[in-house]
Amino acid sequence: MKLKTSLSRKIFLAADYIILALAVCLSLFPLIHILALSFSSAAAAAAGRVSIFPVDVTLDAYKYILGKAEFFRAFGISLLRVALGTAISLSLTILSAYAMSQPDRNFHARKYFVWVFLITMVFSGGMIPLFVVIKAVGIYNSIWALVLPGAVSAFNVVLMLNFFRGLPYALTESALIDGANHFQIMARIVVPISKPSLATVGLFTIVMHWNSWFDGMIYMSDTSKYPLQTYLRNVINSVDVAKMDLTMASAMNTLSQRTVTAAQIFIAIIPILLVYPALQKYFITGMTLGSVKE
């Protein structure tokens, strides 16, 4: 049955659409503004003539970045850490989760190991003790300092573990009877049927690695080894117009840098936008993946 839409309902719906559209515009406006700045001339940016459309459209900022070797080096380091970090994390997650998803009768020490993982979720040594350890094991100032410390995410392991436990155990059992070993079962049965969940965990690991900047800042002593986000932080803070006083900022005429910074920020967003459709697809899965269905 359908009720007739009353006038007040119509007004409400119109207001509803308008409020939501405003919310969307508000949340996207800063991003669009930065994009517009990056394609505008330095003069237009400095004169404050840019809002959501580029003014005096030019590729100057991008051309300038093309000549910046540091930018591309940092970009490459970020790609490398994403590739290495995700591959290592995902492998460790699958291996650990598979082992700990076994029934207790198959793997008697199972629950003790689960605790070993869970404890790392709640307790941590904190910034300085970890820093001392990283220096002591000799990975300070190398890409491994960005990849290894966070490689085992107990959270992801627990997510996958719960997912594996939800699979019918008969699959494993019948394979065991057929003479397969656990490595084969994991690689040929469990992993292939868990692709959506693995994709979720993988995507979130990719985004996490791409977005990390603090580890680069404290574990890398050479700025030439900075990943993109750390490099970008340096760029932003050296032009830091907002944090300077008014007179200083205008005296230094740093405003022409604005378009270049905007362009670099935008390039750093592109990889996220590329995986965004996939992220969106798995977003809800990711949130419900960990829930126990008992």
Binding site: R233, I236, K243, L246, I265, A268
Partner: peptide, 16 residues
Amino acid sequence: VILGGILIDVLSPTGG
């Protein structure tokens, strides 16, 4: 870093 960079520009007292 990205959002901060954007905010620093958008909120700048000189031309933000």
